[in-house]
Simulated assay, not measured.
Amino acid sequence: MHVIDWAIAQQDPAIGITPQFARHLGPVGSELSERVSAAIRAYPCDVLFVHRDSESESLEKRQSEIASAFTELTHSYVPIIPMRMTEAWLLSDEHAIRSAAGNPNGRTGLGIPGKREWERTKNPKQILFDALKAASERNARALKKFSPDRQRLRVAELTTDFSGLRGLASFDQFEATLKSKLFGEK
């Protein structure tokens, strides 16, 4: 939601939005078309944002899957497809990572690869978790009580500028589609 809110504000800060996170859309593993229909029924909206991590699939394959889910619907949608997994999009703000780890002024290296690697790395979640642990600067005993999984959610909340993601194919595609859907531009 934070990435979506930020991206919309970048297009036009005056756009009034009421974001809703669609939950309880059927059992895990149900068809995407069923979840999309359930989301539209339960959460009426002008534009539905559909998130699918690419995982091991190509951006194009995931776009096709999402488009197929809308073949019988006339609803407007914007696909959000981070390469591999969403955590790749959370590597852009070192200060947010440090703050989420509870140590905003820390100086320890976080081991985050360069931007060109974020969409290529096989496990961005592990890179983010390792960065959160390093950023905490806690000793081994204290790290046993530290939950990088919980803190990962804070990274998105604490990131105030996602422009560091520009130049990543998946993010650029998201922004272009968003602009097209909001303003009819290509």
Rank of each mutant, 00 (worst) to 15 (best):
F171T: 05
E34S: 13
V3D: 01
T108H: 07
V78Y: 05
L91Y: 02
T160P: 00
Y43F: 15
Q11G: 00
L110A: 02
K145P: 00
L158H: 04
S92G: 14
G167A: 11
E72V: 07
F162A: 05
A176C: 03
A140G: 05
I127F: 06
A42W: 06
W6F: 15
T159F: 01
S163K: 05
I40N: 07
K133M: 11
L165K: 04
G102M: 10
Y77S: 03
A22N: 11
C45R: 10
L182R: 11
K122S: 15
A131M: 06
E137P: 01
A88S: 15
L90R: 06
K181P: 00
A135T: 04
K125E: 09
R84E: 11
L168G: 02
V47Q: 06
N103R: 13
K133F: 07
V36P: 00
I127D: 02
M83Y: 15
D149P: 00
A96W: 08
R98T: 12
I40T: 07
G109F: 09
A142E: 11
P79A: 08
A156D: 02
Q20N: 11
T71Y: 13
R150S: 09
S64N: 11
W6H: 09
V3A: 01
S33D: 11
V50E: 04
W118R: 02
Y77I: 02
E157I: 14
T177H: 11
K145G: 01
E94A: 12
I4V: 13
M83V: 07
N105H: 12
E175W: 01
D93C: 11
A22K: 12
Q20R: 15
E137A: 12
R116N: 15
A96E: 09
R107Q: 11
V28E: 12
I97Y: 02
E175P: 01
A142S: 05
E137Q: 13
I17T: 15
P27H: 10
H2E: 15
A156L: 06
A7H: 04
S92R: 06
